[in-house]
Design a protein around this nucleic acid. Structure first.
Length: 305
DNA sequence: TGCCAGGTAAACA
DNA sequence: TGTTTACATGGC
């Protein structure tokens, strides 16, 4: 349950003890060409669209380590509905609902993770609360390096998303499924991703426009396996993308993108191996992660950037 | 320069 | 069920 205080122009999200804003900022700052938010002086700036209302928010921390959200730009205060939606968005984005104590309890006895939880204490899985954005990011990121993935995302957003200007800075709102569903492959190939990926993005957008793919459907009864099955049945979404989305958007802590090459490289680095681990070796190493595979993966990724 | 990149579908054994 | 290959482009 979201724990927050609404002061109209300013919202406070009360954070758990196992939360370190700077660790999360470090993750958010890993790319200099990220287009979905701006970070300046240890504060996050981002445009969020709720219904017809676009808000530009600033996220910082107070003396008690809580998150403070301020609404910039607007002359009139944001509506009550928007304030609640923004509070929910940020709550989800930082995964503040999660109790990390069991994860830390498990990880301190795990050879791979015990260093990670000391180095990155208070880090949470920074999410992608918007399902369409999460799916696009997953599909775009398949089989290309991360820097190029950020370039492709930026091209997609700048061509089909919406821009909100404020004090000389551009804030981008990710395209909605309806912005992409009516496109043809020819409209997307100019971004320089594979024809297949263009098809996948359009197909996913269509599914969402038709209401056949929603967060509610994937959350189901909280059953991870059913969500995974639904996602994998969609062309262009394999085990990696499905688990990636279940991890970053649906917030299943047991989602496990085991095919992730970044995870492989992180394990190789932490253990000082000469070659990347095999799937079998990873499964052995992950034996005790049950229920926390997503957090284990996310913490290990941090060694790479 | 050549290998690799936060994989997947489709073809084939 | 398991293995191989094309995909497209760019980063380093």
């Amino acid at each position: 349950m979201i724990d927050w205080q609404d002061n109209v122009r300013e919202l406070t999200l009360f954070t758990p003890k196992e939360f370190n804003f700077n660790e999360n900022l470090n993750y958010l700052m890993r790319s200099s060409i990220e287009c979905m938010y701006v970070i300046k002086d240890e504060r996050i700036y981002k445009a969020i669209s709720v219904g017809q209302e676009d808000s530009i928010i600033e996220i910082s921390t107070d003396a008690e380590n809580n998150l403070v959200i301020r609404f910039l730009r607007d002359s009139a205060p944001a509506s009550k509905l928007t304030r609640a939606a923004v509070a929910n968005y940020v709550w989800e984005w930082f995964d503040l609902e999660r109790d990390l104590m069991p994860f830390y309890g498990m990880a301190e006895n795990d050879s791979l993770l015990k260093g990670a939880i000391v180095s990155f204490y208070g880090l949470r899985i920074m999410g992608i609360p918007d399902l369409f954005e999460a799916l696009c990011w997953g599909i775009i990121g398949q089989q290309i390096n991360l820097t190029f993935a950020y370039t492709l995302k930026r091209r997609l957003v700048e061509k089909f998303g919406r821009c909100v200007e404020f004090e000389g800075e551009s804030y981008w709102i990710f395209p909605k499924p309806s912005d992409i569903a009516s496109l043809n492959v020819e409209d997307l190939v100019g971004l320089r991703m594979t024809v297949k990926k263009c098809e996948y993005l359009i197909d996913v957008a269509k599914l969402m426009v038709e209401g056949k793919l929603t967060k509610e459907l994937l959350l189901g009864t909280g059953n991870f396996k059913s969500g995974e099955k639904i996602l994998i049945s969609i062309r262009g979404i394999g085990p990696w993308t499905a688990n990636y989305v279940l991890m970053r958007c649906l917030r299943f802590p047991n989602a496990f993108p085991i095919d992730d090459v970044g995870l492989h490289n992180a394990i190789k680095q932490v253990l000082g191996m000469d070659t990347k681990p095999t799937k079998k070796e990873i499964l052995q190493l992950a034996e005790n992660w049950t229920g926390w595979e997503a957090y284990a993966t996310f913490y290990l990724w941090r060694f790479l950037y």
